[in-house]
Simulated scan of single mutants.
Amino acid sequence: MKNKAMTYVLLAAVIGLWGYILMQVFNSLSSDSTIPTTGKRTFGEQEMNLSFYKTKNTGALLLNYSDPMLRNQTHEELTEPLVVESNTAIDTYVAPQPYEPVPQIDVQYLGYIENLVDKRPTAIIQIEGKQYMMNNGEHQSGMKLVSMTKEYIKIKIDNMIKTIYKNEN
């Protein structure tokens, strides 16, 4: 009987101890605390004696040396003054033609499939809202399919090659 009573007392002490430990852990993790926490300073500020450092006497820079890149070259001085004709640039100015951007074609690369027999890839492309199945070198709506991979296709429109990446939507 004595052992049973001691077991219950020790069990209550262990449960109480673990309850206290868990309460401390949860209280430290919660953000409800209004008390700011600060770290303790474990070191004191010390005055530093820097009198043993001495400054170097570097002197002044000498800037009257010759340029090492132009050492073997001679320069010619202008003997006559430079004459600038006035208004020549303003009189001969021609305004550039306004730039009209090339209209863009809405092209999206949706994916590709392979032919089961000859393993030839066929791209699925959406041009201006319509879907087409194209192979390398084929033309459609003023566009030529130059090359294709799983990630992107290269197309040629108006002698310009553009790379279009696959839509992931």
Rank of each mutant, 00 (worst) to 15 (best):
K166R: 14
E76D: 06
M134A: 03
E138T: 13
P103Q: 14
W18T: 12
P68A: 06
T55R: 13
N3P: 02
K56L: 11
M143Q: 04
L110G: 08
N64A: 09
S33L: 13
E128L: 03
Q97L: 12
E128W: 00
L17V: 11
E138R: 13
I127E: 02
Y8H: 12
Y132Q: 08
D91I: 14
E100Q: 14
E47N: 14
L17P: 00
I124V: 13
P98V: 09
T122V: 09
M1P: 02
A95N: 06
Q97G: 04
M143N: 04
S51K: 07
M48R: 15
V107P: 01
I124N: 06
Q108D: 06
N72D: 14
S28T: 00
D91Q: 14
D91P: 00
L10W: 14
V117E: 06
E128C: 02
I125M: 02
N136A: 12
M1V: 10
T34W: 02
G19Q: 01
S147F: 07
D106N: 15
D91L: 14
A89P: 01
Y99P: 00
I157W: 01
G111T: 07
M133S: 12
S147V: 08
E77L: 11
P101W: 04
I157L: 08
T55M: 09
N57I: 07
G19S: 11
Q126K: 15
T163R: 10
L110I: 13
I90M: 10
T55V: 11
F26K: 08
T58K: 06
V9Y: 10
K150I: 05
Y132E: 04
N87T: 09
I153H: 07
E128S: 11
V117F: 05
Y53A: 09
N115T: 06
D32W: 06
N87Y: 15
A5W: 08
D158G: 02
F43D: 04
E138G: 09
T55G: 05
S28Y: 00
L78T: 05
Q46A: 13
T37F: 03
V14K: 01
P103G: 10
G39F: 02
Y132H: 15
N167T: 15
N136Y: 02
Q140G: 00
A12H: 06
T55K: 12
T38M: 05
K156C: 04
I161H: 03
Q140Y: 01
K166V: 12
Y53F: 15
P68M: 03
V84I: 08
G111V: 04
Q73F: 13
E168I: 13
T122G: 03
K166M: 10
V14N: 01
N57G: 04
G137N: 03
D67E: 02
Y109R: 07
D118Y: 04
K150G: 10
N159F: 11
N49D: 15
Y109L: 11
L82P: 00
I155G: 03
P121K: 11
S66F: 10
K166T: 05
P36E: 10
S28E: 00
A123P: 00
I153F: 10
A60Y: 10
V117G: 02
N87L: 13
Y152S: 15
V9L: 12
S147H: 05
P81E: 13
L78N: 10
K4G: 07
F26Y: 10
E138M: 14
N167F: 01
R41V: 04
Q104N: 03
E85F: 07
